[in-house]
Simulated scan of single mutants.
Amino acid sequence: MGRRPHPRNARGQRDAGARPRLYGRHAVLAALANPHRQFRKLFATPDALSALGPLPRRLAVQSGDAADLARLVPADAPHQGLVLEVEPLEGAFLEDLLASPDPARPLVVLDQVTDPMNVGAIIRSATAFGAAGLITQDRHAPSESGALARAAAGALETLPWVRVVNLARALEQVADAGFWRIGLDGSAAATLAQALPTGPVALVLGAEGEGMRQNTRAHLDMLARLPIRDAVESLNVSTAAAIALYATATRPMGPS
């Protein structure tokens, strides 16, 4: 089921400014299929429009050539003949995300990961491996954008995304709900496989280079590393997230 659009004055609403413009076939089709999305206008080339099939009622459509659409998105953005102007989606509520912990559905927590391509890729992997949702700090995470949506390949429309003011406090609530909080750190003594429990898990990742902040580390149950070779200092955060999610999804499951 799709995520809902922002209601006015709802908790977690981002500063609207310009409305997001989603581009690329996967991102646009997923948004059009989300019954909770609010659309403003679809810009499309005639060929891309003819391949779409039935469109939602009252959706304004403007036809143009590829060069026209290119002026609506960042330079060199691969719009594939489709640009959809939308309202931002509503952020999920942390209480709802923590209401029914499921060992098979981890949480992903990002500490100041700001690159929209990385966050979009993490959303895609989180959805692929059955994560329950994403938690980020409100002020140090990217806004919804075309680049993020395209990297998420449609998963932005379905994965619950909680934006919180205080990440440390949110991690306390995560622990109170029964999740084991594991932070990924290349210098940790234990590997992720050794650290993973059989119960609910929250995987915590920090920004590339800087890593997790000290206050975030202070609210973890354990640090763990991925067993990469010394020839590579570290992995891109979205790659590390995908590997961690796979390891979590394939761990032996037994009594908690």
Score class of each variant (00 low, 15 high):
residue 93 F to V: 12
residue 159 L to Q: 02
residue 103 P to K: 10
residue 182 I to E: 09
residue 237 V to M: 07
residue 131 A to P: 07
residue 249 A to T: 09
residue 139 R to N: 08
residue 124 R to I: 10
residue 55 L to Q: 11
residue 2 G to C: 05
residue 68 D to N: 13
residue 256 S to K: 07
residue 88 P to T: 11
residue 182 I to V: 12
residue 10 A to M: 06
residue 254 G to R: 13
residue 231 A to Y: 07
residue 57 R to S: 14
residue 7 P to L: 13
residue 52 L to R: 13
residue 234 S to H: 04
residue 66 A to M: 11
residue 94 L to P: 03
residue 184 L to W: 07
residue 119 V to Q: 04
residue 190 A to S: 10
residue 69 L to K: 07
residue 160 P to H: 09
residue 191 T to C: 10
residue 244 A to N: 02
residue 215 N to F: 09
residue 127 T to K: 12
residue 113 V to W: 08
residue 235 L to K: 10
residue 137 Q to F: 00
residue 208 E to A: 12
residue 115 D to E: 14
residue 222 M to C: 14
residue 18 A to V: 12
residue 43 F to R: 05
residue 84 L to R: 06
residue 250 T to W: 00
residue 146 G to K: 03
residue 184 L to I: 13
residue 83 V to E: 01
residue 153 A to N: 03
residue 235 L to T: 09
residue 172 E to I: 04
residue 248 T to V: 04
residue 95 E to H: 10
residue 39 F to D: 02
residue 54 P to C: 03
residue 68 D to T: 14
residue 76 D to R: 15
residue 72 L to D: 10
residue 32 L to W: 02
residue 79 H to P: 05
residue 199 G to S: 10
residue 4 R to F: 02
residue 45 T to Y: 01
residue 99 A to S: 15
residue 9 N to I: 00
residue 49 L to T: 13
residue 251 R to A: 06
residue 9 N to R: 15
residue 101 P to A: 14
residue 192 L to D: 10
residue 205 L to M: 13
residue 184 L to D: 02
residue 119 V to G: 08
residue 187 S to W: 00
residue 249 A to Y: 09
residue 23 Y to T: 06
residue 90 E to S: 15
residue 24 G to V: 08
residue 148 L to E: 12
residue 228 I to V: 14
residue 215 N to L: 05
residue 15 D to K: 06
residue 94 L to S: 05
residue 233 E to A: 15
residue 182 I to T: 08
residue 165 V to S: 03
residue 15 D to G: 02
residue 149 A to V: 00
residue 214 Q to V: 11
residue 108 V to A: 03
residue 179 F to D: 03
residue 172 E to H: 13
residue 151 A to G: 05
residue 244 A to M: 10
residue 196 L to P: 03
residue 179 F to W: 10
residue 17 G to C: 02
residue 116 P to A: 13
residue 109 V to K: 01
residue 248 T to P: 00
residue 177 A to W: 14
residue 185 D to C: 02
residue 240 A to C: 11
residue 223 L to R: 11
residue 248 T to Y: 00
residue 147 A to E: 15
residue 200 P to L: 05
residue 110 L to V: 03
residue 4 R to S: 09
residue 188 A to I: 01
residue 148 L to R: 09
residue 135 I to A: 07
residue 200 P to N: 05
residue 196 L to H: 04
residue 135 I to C: 04
residue 201 V to S: 04
residue 162 V to I: 07
residue 174 V to A: 05
residue 55 L to G: 09
residue 112 Q to D: 14
residue 77 A to H: 01
residue 160 P to R: 06
residue 20 P to F: 01
residue 16 A to S: 08
residue 80 Q to C: 01
residue 117 M to V: 13
residue 186 G to W: 09
residue 43 F to L: 13
residue 204 V to P: 01
residue 27 A to T: 06
residue 249 A to E: 12
residue 8 R to H: 13
residue 256 S to P: 14
residue 149 A to N: 05
residue 256 S to A: 15
residue 200 P to V: 00
residue 199 G to F: 11
residue 175 A to C: 03
residue 146 G to S: 05
residue 48 A to K: 02
residue 66 A to G: 02
residue 209 G to H: 10
residue 151 A to W: 05
residue 85 E to F: 00
